[in-house]
Design a protein around this nucleic acid. Structure first.
Length: 480
RNA sequence: GGGAUCGUCGUCUAGCUUGGUAUGAUACUAGUCUGGGGGACUAGUGGUCGCAGGUUCAAAUCCUGCCGGUCCCA
């Protein structure tokens, strides 16, 4: 391995796919497991996930949602209770058929999602309107067999996610919950991960199997492909009926409950890597970065060391007292240059360099990761770092938004669409609402309806494909 | 679903056509000098060639199957 091979050896622009994989492996976020389609998270990857889960947990909690735990095995009889749901997931379910050498009668599924299991439990727990709403969230992993085209964080046979399941007395309340969750998702992804999203509905064809409707948030990746960032489903009574999730209302009449389910996965990490990363490696938005500021002390002789280290400690304490997550890189065997590159590969938002020269000048050098700018900051101004972190966060979202806009088009001519889709992007185009057109477009161009943005409809335009009256203006794109 | 391609110390790689138990770099360990953008020198450790069979006196090399990675098309 040459010097260059320690870092990323391909450019994001020229070989996006390889670039992505190298970041995941070389920034030590994850590694491949011995089984196809599975990955192992390493500490630097897992701490990003923890940072995300912490943020979501706070928001869920303030919305009255509490965490629980569900087992990973679901008996086939339960999974099959809602027929469409079962049919939708069956091709990608892993089955447990044996315990030791003995065959299991009712074979067990490794959960592809937990609606059926959760609602079996809910039906035991809910009897009265006083038990509602019931709002729970589960952090776990789900398993869906991916045979081809696996990619760390984006498509793996097992993935970490949260699945939320709520039960309500009325349709209105459940639908409100669907939107509240989608709003939490959108805020978190935009404000914490600095990734702009478009929210709206999935088409009938693309909705969650078993849902009445699915709301989604979609983002556009730098290679022009769309990535589904999270979904929030209104299940209506589709599950409450087969699973008998019912309650006695105030009038003592028994009703089936109204339900929602929703989830985001570690795919968000993949999106963050793709959107913000550059040819030096990962770039973490400050709010989600496990380490926000890394201090690299620079010294050679003992004297310098005695001058530098106390100052480093002082700065560390000051930053920590302001709630900033700081790390001091005191590895003695590595040169400063190596450390600079190393932390850039790992994406830490701000690096502080402090050596004898700086101590004499009563200042430090700070380097911002997202634009790789260096500047000098006086000792008395160190507290400004809080503000700088905020500014970086805002700048990153702004840049990402601009990039997304560049790759978004409004279009109505199908031939134009067919030629432009080759380069990727989001295409807002009128659609008649018929499945047939949706399927044809998919077949001919590889693009599907990613999202029908809220408020889209009542247009005078003709369907891009069949020229009949359109009923909405969805975003078409090729997806991950 | 169809097709292509790859797999050799931790990592990257030579060797494979024309069989004779493996090359170099980097990393790692120890020491000395160094230290403001991936440091230098010296001395060491580390692989039986993805896995399983087969052919052969002999297999990293030839054959078959499997496992895993990557890419393209639907």
């Amino acid at each position: 391995m040459t010097k260059e091979d320690i870092g990323i050896t391909v450019s994001k622009k020229e070989d996006f796919s390889e670039w992505y994989t190298q970041i995941v492996l070389k920034a030590k976020l994850a590694d491949y497991a011995p089984v196809k389609g599975l990955i192992v998270l390493r500490p630097d990857g897992y701490s990003i996930w923890e940072s995300l889960t912490n943020t979501f947990d706070k928001k869920f909690a303030s919305n009255g949602i509490r965490n629980g735990f569900l087992p990973i095995l679901i008996p086939e009889s339960l999974l099959g209770k809602e027929q469409k749901h079962f049919a939708g997931f069956n091709p990608e379910v892993f089955w447990v058929t044996h315990s030791g050498d003995n065959e299991i009668g009712d074979r067990l599924a490794l959960r592809p999602t937990s609606e059926t299991l959760a609602y079996t439990m809910y039906s035991k727990w809910i009897q009265s309107w006083r038990d509602l709403p019931l709002k729970m969230n589960f952090w776990n992993s789900a398993l869906r067999a991916e045979i081809k085209g696996t990619k760390p964080f984006l498509r793996t046979s097992e993935f970490l996610w949260q699945e939320g399941h709520t039960v309500h007395a009325t349709r209105e309340e459940a639908e409100e919950e669907v939107m509240k969750i989608l709003e939490i998702y959108k805020n978190t992804v935009e404000e914490e991960l600095a990734i702009p999203v478009t929210t709206g509905n999935k088409s009938e064809k693309e909705k969650f199997v078993g849902a009445v409707y699915t709301t989604t948030m979609e983002s556009i990746m730098p290679d022009g492909k769309a990535l589904q960032m999270g979904t929030s489903h209104f299940l209506g009574q589709n599950f409450s009926k087969p699973f008998e999730v019912k309650f006695a209302d105030k009038d003592n009449v028994e009703h089936f409950a109204w339900q929602t389910s929703w989830g985001v996965s570690w795919r968000l990490i993949g999106a963050m890597i793709m959107i913000h990363g550059d040819d030096q490696g990962l770039v973490l938005p400050p709010r989600i970065a496990p380490i926000q500021v890394v201090i690299v002390p620079i010294y050679k002789k003992g004297d310098d060391r005695d001058m530098v280290l106390p100052k480093v400690e002082e700065i560390r304490e000051m930053l920590e007292s302001k709630g900033i997550r700081v790390h001091v890189d005191d590895r003695s065997e590595l040169s400063p240059g190596y450390k600079f590159n190393d932390w850039e590969l790992k994406g830490v938002p701000i690096r502080i360099e402090i050596g004898p020269k700086d101590v004499k000048k009563q200042s430090v050098v700070i380097a911002k990761r997202y634009n790789r700018e260096k500047s000098s900051l006086g000792f008395t101004e160190i507290e400004k770092i809080s503000t700088i972190l905020d500014e970086i966060q805002i700048a990153m979202l702004k840049t990402a938004r601009e990039q997304a806009n560049v790759n978004s088009y409004v279009i109505s001519d199908y031939n134009e669409f067919k030629s432009k889709i080759e380069k990727g992007g989001f295409f807002t185009a009128p659609w008649c609402g018929k499945l047939e057109c949706e399927e044809k477009i998919k077949e001919e161009t590889g693009a599907d309806i990613r999202v029908i943005p809220f408020g889209s409809g009542n247009t005078d335009e003709k369907c891009m494909y069949c020229q009949e009256q359109s009923i909405s203006v969805p975003i078409f794109a090729r997806g991950y």
